[in-house]
Simulated scan of single mutants.
Amino acid sequence: MNLKFSERANEIKASEIRELLKLTERPELISFAGGLPAPELFPVDNMKKIAYKVVEEQGKEALQYSTTEGYTPLRQTIVDQRLKPAGINVTVDNILITSGSQQALEFTAKLFIDKDDVIICESPSYLGAINAFKAYQPKFVEVPMDDDGMIIEELEKKLREYPNAKFIYTIPDFQNPTGKTLSVERRKRLADIAGQYEIPVVEDSPYAELIFEGNRYPTIKSFDNSGYVIHLGTYSKTFCPGLRIGWVCAHKDILQKYVLIKQGADLQCSTIDQRITAQFMKEYNLDEHISKIIEVYRNRRNIMIESMQKFFPSEVKYTLSKGGLFTWVELKKELNTKKILEEALEEKVAFVPGGSFFPNGGNENYFRLNYSNMSEEKIVEGIKRLGKVLSKYY
């Protein structure tokens, strides 16, 4: 076909994660690739009751159009149950419901990025965000990390070098892909930097409640005195990803721009899914559900780390995350994990090669492993298979 696509469309490439997720449909494959929650933990029976009740009692309203901002009782629930305990004191007027936080990332790109604009992110960073931003053709400036997350001194160097940068993107809690967490002091400083440099900080926070050790850190947004911090949240990792319920929490002036963008994109999120979610949160305790998730994921993380210690070559490095869904593996610099993945697939085990998490390329000697989705037995067997592949290179 002779079609004249836009320059933006021609720049879009397939997401490696989405392509790899297709592999999870192969029953013989042990996949550590996707960031998938454990399906056996979904509250299926309770959701049946709630869905029936919503249709029975609210059917006409649940099947009708609703406001772009989202179902008000759901927004209030997010404020009361998810944001206030995280130190974020806002009202429903600061909340927009989105189709997962991925839509919020796409809207963020559309809102801020013109071609060749500079955006600043951690190195490495979330592949889904990189892909959402890349469609708008920015220049990525990467800031290195250490065990306490993004190095703030390096960030300030970049801000002085690129004073017209449009925003800073960060995943402060159990970062995807590294599993690292930004320290409290750096969170405070980052909130101050947002106001000092008058630059938005986009705080992507899908994993913050999945804490295996210690207490939850305050959000960056909780230190925000200037209104420049935009907080993104979601129910996908703590409840049901298939509902696609996420949210943007921002200053009213910023949020109104997001609302206008959503009106042009899809008018609103699913009315019935919003009402089902709100009713579930009214009748059941999500914190109790999250506690069950944490217990399972902590055990699976421990089993994965123990298996890596047993089956991986001793020179291989990896992170011990204190929460979230991932561990990040570093191999010798000369190795290429895309090539190693081909061999791993022959052993019927999958992971995500690390190069795509670096927006400016390079660093092909890393890969990401997910421990939330596979059973304990499959984790042991999968790491054993992967260790067999890696042993050829050490």
Rank of each mutant, 00 (worst) to 15 (best):
M1G: 12
N2F: 12
L3C: 06
L3T: 15
E7G: 00
A14C: 00
S15A: 09
I17K: 12
L20V: 02
L36Q: 08
P39R: 12
P43H: 06
K49F: 02
I50G: 07
E61F: 10
Q64P: 00
Q64G: 09
Q64F: 10
Y65I: 09
Y65P: 15
S66N: 14
T67C: 05
T68A: 07
Y71C: 04
L74I: 06
R75F: 12
Q76N: 13
V79P: 07
Q81V: 11
R82P: 01
G87A: 11
L96W: 04
I97N: 10
G100V: 04
G100S: 12
L105A: 08
L105E: 11
E106M: 14
F107V: 05
T108W: 01
K110N: 13
K110R: 14
D116G: 10
D117Q: 05
V118R: 02
S125M: 09
Y126T: 08
A129H: 02
I130C: 08
F133S: 02
A135D: 00
F140S: 06
V141L: 03
D146V: 09
D146Y: 09
M150I: 12
E156M: 09
K157M: 02
K158A: 09
L159F: 03
L159T: 01
R160L: 08
Y169I: 01
T170E: 03
I171W: 04
D173V: 01
F174T: 06
G179W: 05
G179I: 07
G179H: 05
G179L: 06
T181M: 06
L182C: 04
L190D: 03
D192G: 05
A194C: 04
Y197T: 04
V201M: 01
D204A: 14
S205Y: 09
S205D: 15
E209M: 12
F212V: 08
Y217K: 13
T219Q: 10
K221I: 05
Y228S: 02
L232H: 07
C240Q: 11
L243V: 07
G246I: 08
G246P: 05
L260E: 14
K262F: 04
D266G: 13
L267Y: 04
Q268E: 14
S270K: 11
S270A: 13
I272N: 12
Q274N: 13
I276N: 08
A278R: 12
M281F: 15
K282R: 15
I290V: 15
I293S: 01
I294E: 02
E295Y: 02
E295V: 06
N302C: 00
E306A: 15
E315P: 01
V316T: 06
T319E: 07
L320N: 13
L320I: 13
L320C: 05
K322Q: 15
G324V: 09
W328T: 12
V329Q: 05
L331Y: 07
L331S: 08
I340K: 07
L341T: 08
K348F: 02
V349N: 04
G355S: 14
G355H: 14
Y371K: 05
N373V: 07
E376N: 14
G382A: 07
I383W: 04
R385S: 04
R385H: 03
L390D: 02
